[in-house]
Each structure stands twice: as C-alpha cells, then as structure tokens.
Amino acid sequence: MRGGIAERGGVRVGHRIIEINGMSVVATPHEKIVDILATAVGEIHMKTMPLSMYRLLTGQEQPAFL
C-alpha cells in the first residue's frame, strides 16, 4: 500500500520477502507469510530482494513449493 508501513520500511512493489525475523521464508506459501506477519508481535525484521534478483538467482518468478 502506497505510504503504508511496509513501504516506509523499504519494501517495494515487486520485492520478494526472503526472511522474517531471521527465518527463511523463500519456500513458504504466500498465505503462511501473510499469517506470520499478521500474528507477529513487536518489531518485524524482514529481508527482501527485488524480483529481478530473485529471478536471476532462482530462475523462477515465484517459489516452487514441493
């Protein structure tokens, strides 16, 4: 959301969240990531990666879930 807390924290449209509070979420379904973020208490530390970099490193647009 433009001007929202994520954008103010540096998350941009097209970024992939790769880590939340030190835990990799690369192969985590979107719904689970939303749940993790919605139920988090206190500060949330995220690492993100632009889609272009994600695509270069993995060869995927979206993670493949096994």
Rank of each mutant, 00 (worst) to 15 (best):
G10L: 10
I33T: 03
V34P: 00
I44S: 05
T58Q: 12
G9N: 08
G42V: 04
A40E: 12
P29L: 07
N21A: 07
I5S: 09
A27L: 15
L51A: 03
V13P: 01
V25S: 00
R8E: 02
G14M: 02
E19N: 14
E31G: 04
G9R: 06
G10H: 06
T39C: 13
V13Q: 04
L57I: 11
T39Q: 12
L57P: 04
G22I: 11
K32H: 00
M1C: 08
G9K: 01
K32V: 08
M46E: 02
S52M: 10
G4C: 11
M23P: 00
A6M: 04
T58L: 10
V26L: 11
G59P: 15
I33K: 11
T58M: 04
L51S: 05
K47C: 03
V41H: 00
V11R: 14
G9P: 09
M23H: 09
V41M: 02
L51D: 04
I20L: 07
G22E: 09
L66E: 13
A38K: 05
I5H: 06
K32C: 08
R55L: 06
V11L: 15
R16G: 04
D35W: 09
E43N: 03
T58W: 14
A40C: 05
E7M: 05
E19R: 06
Q62N: 12
